[in-house]
């Protein structure tokens, strides 16, 4: 067994785990944060994407022991003080999700993209999310959602496809 100590969304987690425990299972089963999903077993789909020290990482292909001492961010950490993160808002406003299963991983990749490029072109967004598979949306609205978030983060006015609630 090995000792793993990490911060997830700013909160400390510590556990004795098998050295072979996958990070995604640490997050889901040990930390109980089930927003991070498992969609494949070959590092292809990206449903398990989290940020490890700010870098989007597929947590199904990392061992928990590899990130000992690390700073992790998952979908549960995006909302702050009851305010959705601009990426979450963009996905809602632009209908960037349908079944919702790939969405957390997709959003974490988007957050990392916008950290380094707040005004990405269509091509830049598509390249950034090319390691995240979505079977429902055909990606068009995901691209719009991420650009919506970029505009919001740049302080520009934004309007989405959806009507605001009555």
């Amino acid at each position: 067994m090995a000792q793993v100590k990490v911060n997830i969304n700013g909160a400390p987690y510590q556990a004795e785990v098998e050295p072979r425990l996958l990070l995604v299972h640490f997050i889901r089963e040990v930390a109980g944060l089930t927003g991070t999903h498992v969609g494949c077993d070959s590092t292809s789909c990206g449903a398990c994407t989290v940020l490890v020290d700010g870098v989007p990482s597929k947590s199904c292909t990392l061992l928990a022991v590899q990130v000992d001492g690390g700073d992790l961010q998952t979908v549960e950490g995006l909302e702050r003080d009851g305010q959705l993160h601009p990426v979450q808002e963009g996905f809602w406003e632009e209908h960037g999700l349908q079944c919702g299963f790939c969405t957390p991983g997709m959003m974490m990749t988007a957050v990392a993209l916008l950290e380094r490029n707040s005004n990405p072109s269509d091509d830049e967004v598509r390249r950034a999310i090319s390691g995240n598979l979505c079977r429902c949306t055909g990606y068009v609205n995901i691209v719009k959602a991420i650009q919506y978030a970029g505009a919001k983060m740049r302080g520009e006015p934004v309007t989405g496809a959806a009507e605001s609630a009555a």
Partner: peptide
């Protein structure tokens, strides 16, 4: 009398708030 947002409206999805927060309830959860 009331804004019903019935047929033909691009109403923002009611299911999204839980998915966006990682609070969906899938079988493996």
């Amino acid at each position: 009398a009331v804004a019903v947002q019935g047929m033909g409206h691009s109403v923002k999805r009611k299911e999204d708030p839980r998915f966006l927060r990682g609070k969906g309830n899938y079988v493996d959860d």
